[in-house]
């Protein structure tokens, strides 16, 4: 994972003074942060520190929460994603998201993956759609396990398979960014290992931002790590620096297990 380190020249997101409030109560107090294209950026921090709220800023999922307001400037490739003429529907096609609890649609495996391409009109005909479904499942490392039962319902898979199905569903619409909100928290260690391996692979092609409670996981899969505490970005650095040489006392306390 070292070859993709923070030295990667391209910046995907630039955030300036980002504030998120729920019904007037501020949960994030002015975050300034740049996120690299390609590679994995991990957000860590104790529960309620605002890391998930921040993640949902990037695909404007916060818009769907009643009473939630976002202010500040968030640019993706230099374009303001909160510009009034920007359609969040199109943004979400470019910025996919994987949730904490696997949430495949209660439809067939095939339809789960094909849903995105269908609504975005990405496939001209059935064979193109078949191709997208197959490659997406392959990229998600699920193809070999499900190729003989694409008609089976997606909710019948195991937790780890469901989460990879959700990733395949996300990949199928060809996003540039994949946001992951504690994707492994509902999985057993073996499924988690498989998922991490997959994330590592996907990091070659996508900008991945992941929220995680497991510091070991952040250390294993991410190139850069941001530590959040009580709505503030406390420290943001190359992952190895955060874990071996934290500059802030709060980061040190958290990663050594004294707080959190």
């Amino acid at each position: 994972m070292t070859e993709l380190k923070s030295t990667h020249p391209k910046i995907k997101f630039t955030c300036r003074d980002v504030r998120v409030a729920y019904s007037g109560k501020e949960a994030l107090h002015g975050i300034n942060m740049d996120i690299d294209d390609r590679g994995v950026t991990a957000f860590i921090g104790p529960s309620g520190c605002g890391k998930s709220s921040f993640l949902r800023v990037f695909n404007r999922m916060n818009d769907t929460i009643p009473g939630c307001t976002v202010s500040g400037e968030i640019k993706m490739d230099g374009d303001d994603i909160y510009a009034p003429d920007l359609d969040p529907v199109l943004l979400r096609a470019r910025v996919g998201m994987v949730f904490q609890k696997p949430n495949p649609f209660p439809k067939s495996i095939y339809d789960n993956v094909a849903y995105g391409p269908r609504i975005h009109g990405l496939a001209a005909n059935k064979s193109e759609l078949d191709h997208i479904v197959e490659t997406s499942l392959q990229k998600a490392g699920l193809w070999d396990e499900v190729k003989d039962r694409l008609k089976d319902t997606g909710t019948g898979l195991s937790g780890g398979q469901q989460q990879r199905l959700v990733i395949a569903r996300t990949i199928a619409v060809s996003p540039e960014v994949i946001l992951m909100d504690e994707p492994a928290s509902a999985l057993d260690p073996i499924a988690t290992a498989k998922l991490e391996e997959l994330i590592d692979e996907l990091a070659q092609k996508y900008c991945i931002v992941i929220v995680t409670h497991s510091m070991a996981q952040a250390a294993r899969i991410s190139q850069r790590t941001a530590f959040f505490h009580m709505g503030n970005l406390v420290e943001y650095d190359v992952t190895s620096n955060i874990f071996t040489n934290p500059k802030d006392m709060r980061t040190q306390d958290y990663i050594t297990g004294r707080t959190g």
């Binding site: 695909n59 943004l91 979400r92 998201m97 949730f99 649609f105 849903y115 995105g116 609504i119 959700v166």
Partner: peptide, 27 residues
């Protein structure tokens, strides 16, 4: 209907109406 179903649809770029009519309403 679990909110996660709607979130899943929205997160891959379904419009609000699509999320409701394709996912929430059938269930």
């Amino acid at each position: 209907v679990p909110q996660s179903i709607r979130d899943g649809a929205l997160s891959i770029g379904a419009s609000h109406v699509q999320a409701v009519f394709h996912h929430k309403l059938p269930h």
